[in-house]
Nucleic acid binder design. Structure first.
Length: 272
DNA sequence: ATGACCGACCATGTCGGA
């Protein structure tokens, strides 16, 4: 069975509903994982999603900032919300799809919003950077647990806020001291990946030697002309799904839609 | 300095984003 999963840092789900609607009508992924919903659970636009055919919804939100959600055309058998670093800051939500979704074996989908890390890449003077590094350490020890809820078949997506490879940023050299591409973050990010055996699905479709971005700053005068992007959004699979990917698209054009998010959707299709 | 923006909120500035 084919299953498509999209991830999109939406930067306020309520404000962005017009382009979310457009995206779902045009691309119709089975599952959409959102980050930075900036929306308390009770104010999540459930009705809008149900109307669009996404009747199965798991949210982990809070007022003002952060917040994640999974909306799906296929039913879940369960959903979960984990906390990291002893904070209740709405950075993870998961769902398990199985027989009712037409799958012969269960599949877990984990949706993450990893801390951005602030400006200064120094944990001694920047608590946000310390939190990001600690979050990555905790995620490393938690990788096996994440995979266990899907019985060894998991997809991990989200705004992971690290651009690990040289061609995940517009200038490797100029980004080495910029949060999201510093060696310490890349090292810890790699350790998370290794601990869970997670496979970088996107790079299975685009060679490491080719530029690949999912985020362009709002601050650029002309994001197309400067094209100074970063690949901060990711789609990982557990080893059991290594060969299951069929297609991967980064919807670069979405950065130019009306009132855009600074991130664009990434859609992956699997044969499960 | 890459760049000087964007969104939420008990708002007319401050925090968070990255």
């Amino acid at each position: 069975m084919k299953l498509s999963v999209a991830t999109w840092n939406i930067n306020s789900v309520r404000l962005r509903m017009p382009i979310v609607r457009y995206f779902l009508k045009k691309h119709a992924p089975d599952v959409l994982c959102l980050q930075e919903t900036k929306c308390p659970d009770e104010n999540f636009p459930y009705k809008d999603f149900r109307k669009l055919g996404y009747e199965h919804i798991a949210v982990h939100g809070q007022k003002g900032y952060h917040g994640v959600a999974i909306v799906s055309k296929q039913p879940f058998s369960k959903s979960g919300r984990d906390s990291f670093c002893g904070k209740q800051d709405a950075r993870h939500v998961s769902a398990v799809l199985d027989g009712d979704a037409g799958l012969s074996k269960p599949l877990a989908i984990h949706n993450f919003y990893i801390p951005a890390g602030g400006d200064e890449p120094d944990r001694k003077i920047n608590p946000k950077f310390a939190h990001k590094l600690d979050f990555l350490d905790e995620l490393k020890s938690y990788s096996a647990c994440l995979d266990s809820i899907g019985g060894g078949r998991s997809i991990l997506v989200g705004d992971l806020n690290v651009a690990p490879l040289e061609h995940d940023v517009w200038s490797h050299k100029q980004m080495l001291r910029v949060v999201s591409h510093t060696p310490i973050e890349v090292e810890k990010f790699g350790a998370v990946q290794k601990a869970g055996g997670w496979i970088d699905m996107m790079r299975g479709f685009v060679p490491d030697t080719e530029k690949l971005y999912t985020w362009w700053s709002y601050r650029a005068q002309d994001w197309v002309a400067s094209d100074r992007g970063r690949r901060l959004d990711h789609i990982w699979t557990s080893p059991a799904l290594a060969g299951a990917g069929r297609e991967m698209r980064v919807l670069r054009g979405a950065r130019g839609w009306a009132r855009p998010s600074d991130h664009v959707p990434v859609i992956a299709t699997f044969d499960l």
